[in-house]
């Protein structure tokens, strides 16, 4: 497959994935309405408070933003892979000689673009409520960090989708996502969580991602969080490779 054809096929795959997202209302509900809705709600309630020197509304772009991009990255590609497998669509693509990596890559890319959309909506909402006190440059850094941070979640999502059927994939990924969100302080600021939970949080990649996002808005350590996320990504890549090798398509 030459480079030109690869690019064109990737384009078709990506377009199909984006169509699947836009035309599937349930995915829109869980992946946009819920995170953005929560964000708006908490912003209205506590947006004008100040925590650790930054406005709560601004901090929420990092924490709820983490929740938003993680939801998309963890659910969308995996459920898509499982559905395509159940339908025999992935088989069909294999017959038409589309490298499976291109199909999976398009799913990951579509989820990433979707994540950008979620972050944009949150940013616009926060600005509209007057709770956004950060430079555009800082916001861009937050967005970049959060989007890069979705990589391990996308990998795990795809791994689950390659291994399980659609319903099991949905259940498993949600079961993974919910405790991560609660325990990492994505909904309720970490300092308000009980001591035990705060201890657990230190071992969760979502905590490190949210903290890394917050550090872009104020001050705080960066290295530890980056290391934790890199380790997670390595582990997730290992799991994804295993799942890919043993996948039945």
């Amino acid at each position: 497959m030459n480079a030109g054809l690869t690019v064109r096929v990737f384009g078709v795959e990506l377009r199909d994935e984006l169509r699947a997202i836009v035309r599937e209302p349930t995915s829109l509900f869980f992946s946009i309405l819920m995170p953005v809705g929560f964000f708006v709600l908490f912003n209205l309630l506590y947006g004008h408070d100040t925590t650790q020197g930054i406005s709560a509304g601004t901090a929420m772009v990092a924490t709820f933003g983490t929740y938003g991009v993680i939801t998309v990255a963890a659910l969308q590609p995996g459920i898509g892979v499982a559905q395509d497998r159940d339908l025999g669509w992935l088989r069909m693509k294999r017959v038409s000689a589309v490298p499976i990596g291109i199909s999976l890559g398009a799913k990951a890319m579509a989820a990433l673009l979707y994540g950008v959309g979620v972050l944009l909506l949150m940013g616009v909402a926060a600005a509209a409520f007057g709770t956004l006190h950060a430079s555009v440059w800082a916001m861009l850094r937050v967005a970049l960090v959060l989007l890069l941070g979705t990589v391990p979640f996308t990998l795990i999502s795809v791994a689950v989708g390659l291994r399980f059927r659609t319903n099991a994939t949905i259940a498993l990924l949600n079961a993974l996502l919910f405790p991560l969100a609660v325990l990492s302080g994505l909904w309720i600021p970490i300092q308000f969580l009980p001591h035990v939970m705060r201890q657990i949080a230190k071992f969760l990649p979502t905590y490190h991602l949210a903290q890394l996002g917050l550090s872009q808005l104020g001050h705080g350590p960066v290295l530890l969080h980056v290391l934790a996320l890199l380790l997670t990504t390595l582990g997730a890549a290992g799991v994804a490779v295993m799942a890919y090798r043993h996948a039945r398509i």
């Binding site: 096929v9 169509r19 035309r23 159940d86 339908l87 000689a97």
Partner: peptide, 27 residues
């Protein structure tokens, strides 16, 4: 090859035109 399998499945989100043009480009 041009293949039609016994059990067929397409993503429900795509149209007839999108599926067939997709197949052309993939080929």
């Amino acid at each position: 090859l041009g293949v039609a399998q016994q059990t067929l499945g397409f993503p429900n989100t795509l149209t007839v035109h999108e599926l067939v043009t997709g197949a052309a480009v993939r080929g």
